Simulated scan of single mutants.
Amino acid sequence: MTSERPSRIAVGPSLEPAFARAVTSGGGTVCALDECPDALVWTGGHETFPAVLPASVRWVQLPAAGVENWLTEGIIKAHPQVTWSSAAGAYAATVAEHEVMFLLAGVRALPDHLAATSWTPGDFYPRLGTLRGATVGIIGTGGIGRALIPMLAALGAQSLAVTRTGRPVPGAVETFPVERIDELWPLADHFVIAAPATSETERLIGAEELSSMKPTAWLVNVARGNLIDTDALVDALTRGTIAGAGLDVTDPEPLPDGHPLWSLRNAMITPHDSNPPALRVPAYVEHVTENITRFASGLEPLAVIDPRAGY
């Protein structure tokens, strides 16, 4: 139900001009947290989040797509009267581009080319491939996975999707419920992990799953490092069980100096920067503006968090 007055929105831990403009653009008015706001837009981490929220707060917007830390710390569950929303989907296109980069670099043997110090084209021929005509398994088709599907289609690749329920995902050739995920490993040519980090997804991919993949497969992870058994992955990359991996997240993270993954040429590692600040902040501002507009109109915000599901 639409309020007779503009929604009062607090922004924390500090009020930056871009987010003040987002509040007013969305039809709200900026106020301090101690001035009985209707909602709180948070731009910082869970470490600095207030221990107690004013009773007037009905909605909180969080800046992250993954909210496992907020759940682990009990912050969300401590405020059952509040509707919480994440930034899921806000950064989808940016992260999906990173996934495509990893896949293209893998199938075109870019790591080997970058390491070369002489002109020996024939050395690379056995490892050169294409995404055209390939099938990519996407584990987790929220905003990022859905943004990836048309990017792959533009390159001539088709997608197989995995979701919790198996409800058809637009653009995917077939959608598998998570109970049938084992059917996917021998079917797809490459894999992208974009699933949330929950107790059910921890170590989702281990030695058995890796051994079921094609030896030419590239595995990309932009979700959370603990979705892959790192020791099993190192072993698979060393043995050539799969062709390689593109990792924007690792377990442990940060990946320590001297870790075996650093020395493997078929492991491409980026330091969790698939969504860099220069791109993240404008995308989050846009997401905040849309959700304030929805909140001010009495509509449910985008990306509402289900604490039971973990995302």
Results as ranks from 00 to 15, higher is better:
residue 190 H to N: 00
residue 49 F to S: 03
residue 185 W to S: 04
residue 273 D to A: 15
residue 248 D to C: 09
residue 248 D to V: 04
residue 175 T to N: 08
residue 38 D to W: 04
residue 169 V to F: 07
residue 232 A to H: 05
residue 17 P to C: 01
residue 6 P to T: 09
residue 292 I to G: 02
residue 94 T to H: 11
residue 190 H to G: 04
residue 89 G to K: 06
residue 306 D to H: 03
residue 208 E to V: 01
residue 209 E to Y: 12
residue 113 H to P: 00
residue 298 G to N: 01
residue 93 A to G: 08
residue 130 T to A: 14
residue 79 H to G: 07
residue 135 T to Y: 06
residue 155 L to Y: 10
residue 91 Y to I: 04
residue 130 T to M: 09
residue 249 V to F: 06
residue 278 A to P: 00
residue 107 V to F: 04
residue 152 L to F: 10
residue 102 F to P: 06
residue 112 D to R: 15
residue 218 W to K: 01
residue 237 L to I: 03
residue 115 A to H: 11
residue 201 T to L: 12
residue 93 A to K: 13
residue 159 S to N: 12
residue 148 L to E: 10
residue 212 S to L: 15
residue 248 D to R: 06
residue 52 V to Q: 14
residue 18 A to W: 08
residue 81 Q to S: 15
residue 47 E to D: 14
residue 158 Q to C: 13
residue 101 M to V: 15
residue 252 P to K: 02
residue 302 L to W: 03
residue 138 I to H: 06
residue 170 P to Q: 00
residue 132 R to L: 09
residue 259 H to N: 07
residue 111 P to C: 01
residue 207 A to R: 14
residue 28 G to A: 04
residue 181 I to S: 09
residue 153 A to P: 03
residue 116 A to L: 07
residue 260 P to T: 05
residue 132 R to Y: 13
residue 100 V to I: 15
residue 303 A to D: 13
residue 98 H to P: 00
residue 302 L to Y: 07
residue 76 I to S: 09
residue 266 N to P: 03
residue 308 R to M: 08
residue 139 I to P: 08
residue 61 Q to T: 01
residue 21 R to Q: 13
residue 100 V to D: 10
residue 301 P to E: 07
residue 142 G to D: 06
residue 288 V to H: 01
residue 182 D to K: 14
residue 65 A to V: 02
residue 30 V to Y: 03
residue 35 E to K: 14
residue 224 R to E: 05
residue 87 A to R: 02
residue 231 D to Q: 14
residue 275 N to Y: 11
residue 130 T to Y: 01
residue 178 V to P: 00
residue 272 H to D: 06
residue 245 A to P: 02
residue 294 R to D: 07
residue 261 L to T: 08
residue 226 N to D: 10
residue 137 G to E: 03
residue 235 D to C: 12
residue 249 V to E: 03
residue 83 T to Y: 07
residue 255 L to M: 08
residue 123 D to I: 13
residue 235 D to S: 14
residue 96 A to N: 05
residue 164 R to H: 13
residue 189 D to C: 11
residue 57 V to R: 06
residue 129 G to D: 09
residue 65 A to F: 04
residue 72 T to M: 00
residue 246 G to Q: 06
residue 83 T to P: 02
residue 309 A to V: 14
residue 200 E to D: 15
residue 145 G to N: 04
residue 78 A to W: 00
residue 6 P to F: 08
residue 134 A to I: 09
residue 169 V to A: 09
residue 61 Q to P: 03
residue 187 L to G: 00
residue 201 T to H: 12
residue 97 E to I: 11
residue 78 A to L: 09
residue 180 R to L: 00
residue 292 I to D: 05
residue 65 A to N: 01
residue 306 D to C: 02
residue 205 I to K: 12
residue 50 P to F: 04
residue 3 S to K: 14
residue 234 V to C: 15
residue 161 A to Q: 02
residue 198 T to N: 04
residue 200 E to A: 15
residue 156 G to L: 11
residue 246 G to P: 10
residue 32 A to Q: 13
residue 44 G to K: 12
residue 165 T to N: 09
residue 171 G to A: 07
residue 209 E to P: 10
residue 97 E to Q: 15
residue 120 T to L: 11
residue 138 I to F: 05
residue 221 N to M: 11
residue 6 P to V: 06
residue 76 I to N: 09
residue 2 T to Q: 15
residue 170 P to W: 02
residue 265 R to H: 10
residue 296 A to D: 00
residue 285 V to R: 01
residue 6 P to C: 07
residue 236 A to S: 10
